[in-house]
Design a protein around this nucleic acid. Structure first.
Length: 223
DNA sequence: AAAGTCGTCAACCGCGCAGCT
DNA sequence: AAGCTGCGCGGTTGACGACTT
């Protein structure tokens, strides 16, 4: 019986990367646990998946976070809390690990966020509305976890009025039970972006002007 | 120059969920 | 219904380079 000790741990080297890349080119993504058996790579499937998702994938954007990305992460974190995969899904080219690290090492310090185990922030006080987004064609194709760019077209002018920071959800005119339920769906992971249940940027006060245009030189994953 | 400290980031771990048998 | 497998998520750890003393 093969225990965990059969697999190597720690940093990946170039050869291992190459083996993994070759395997994925040949067999595609998925069935990660087969990789060590088929390719002979001394890495567990989980490690292979992580390496691909966070580093080797051509969809991963490297380098420093831009001001636009930083702003977006801050807003999304205030909305979703430590739901890194959800946040990363709205930051093109960034992985949950990247976002998480960036938050923990820089933004939390910068913003003076007290470190803690907060799972999810309470209903954000900047929320004013929630609406389904029609005809949302996710550019990421079959990857349901990767969400498309924020819909920042028409409502980006800010016709919604953000609630003052000190106001609670209860003070929000649209803080209805339906609204809370919808938010709870998002927070509990029951939202379904593929079924057009999108939140507009306006709804989340995520209207970052510079995000109304695509990121320069960033292509959406062709899946 | 050497030692100590800090910051960053890749990677690991444990857990939970979904799908299949 | 129960067990197994595959996958993904969030928290945490550890290596390593940069910086400070």
């Amino acid at each position: 019986m093969e225990g965990r000790d059969a697999y190597k741990k720690g940093l990946w080297n170039v050869e291992e990367d190459k083996i993994l890349m070759d395997y994925i080119k040949k067999h595609g993504i998925g069935r990660w646990n087969r990789i060590p058996k088929v390719s002979g790579l001394k890495r567990c499937g989980k490690s292979c998946r992580l390496r691909w998702m966070n580093y080797l994938s051509p969809n991963v954007k490297r380098g420093d976070f831009s001001a636009e990305e930083e702003d977006l992460i801050i807003r999304l974190h205030s909305l979703l809390g430590n739901r890194w995969s959800l946040i990363a899904g709205r930051v093109p080219g960034r992985t949950d690990n990247q976002v998480k690290n960036y938050w923990n090492t820089r933004l939390s310090r910068k913003l003076g966020v007290k470190e803690g185990k907060t799972k999810v922030s309470a209903f954000p006080n900047t929320l004013t509305n929630i609406e389904p987004k029609e005809n949302s064609n996710s550019p990421s194709g079959s990857n349901s976890k990767s969400l498309g760019p924020l819909d920042c077209n028409s409502s980006c002018a800010g016709d919604e009025v953000a609630v003052e920071p000190d106001n609670s959800l209860q003070a929000c005119s649209l803080g209805t039970q339906d609204f809370k339920d919808s938010m709870q769906d998002t927070i509990t992971g029951e939202d379904d972006f593929e079924n057009n249940l999108w939140f507009s940027n306006t709804a989340f006060d995520l209207c970052t002007p510079f995000l109304s245009e695509p990121f320069d030189g960033l292509d959406w994953p062709a899946l």
